[in-house]
Amino acid sequence: MSHNIAPIIQIDKVAVRIDGNQILANINLSIHPGELVMISGSNGAGKSTLIKSILGLLPTTEGSVFVAGLRVGSRAWRRVRHDVGYVHQTSVGVEFPITAAEVVEIGLAARRETRKQKNDKVDAAMVATGCRHLRNAVYARLSGGEKQRVSIARCLVQNPSILLLDEPTASLDPEGKDEFLSMIEHLHASRGITVVLVSHDAAQFTRAGWRQLVMSQGQLVTDNKLNGNKPKGTKPNDSKPEYLGHLAAAR
């Protein structure tokens, strides 16, 4: 992929400290439009914190994050922050009454549109992710895979340029994970959406076409472009995180 065009996500020397603990340290990263990026690492490596910094959900202690050239937190960014779709692990409890269609409509909460316009967009997004038949189903009673399809539909109604997915396959079986990633790759190919996916699951690294970033102790330690089952690229430093050991064992 040519990187002559400006990055859609630019992270410059970002550090995040929470309650005195260094969660991220000196992160530098450029992600270009249309890339498929997988960020991996063990629990506590800082993956979710990095995603939340990109979303503006967590303020950075040092450095800056830019999305589509706009500094995260700036007034201009606030107006277009819905350009980034976000899926996280947390799901509502079974006692929370909300239908799948209502969850998708959350993506349009800040838009001033007619009921018909909203319904049409919700329907189109649910068709695109293959969950239209779940429209009136209670969200909390859906399976893990169905919930993730609904969550992606919620992002799609925002018509995003970027999808940030935080452990979206954590609750899926291997078949469900494969199906989910195929759907994401299809959406990426058909809509040109930049995808950043966070996972601790080593098996996902066998998919071709993904750029692989590995984090350890709040730092990016590996940046590879995957081609089939063989990762290419170099490690930015000599440290070998525990995670890579698991990866090697898995292969």
Binding site: R81, G85, Y86, H88, E105, I106, L108, A109
Partner: peptide
Amino acid sequence: FPKLAAVLYDRELAFTAGV
């Protein structure tokens, strides 16, 4: 209602949707 529903569902997701 749409904004209130979004916050009731999840404050972080509501924020990322522009609420």
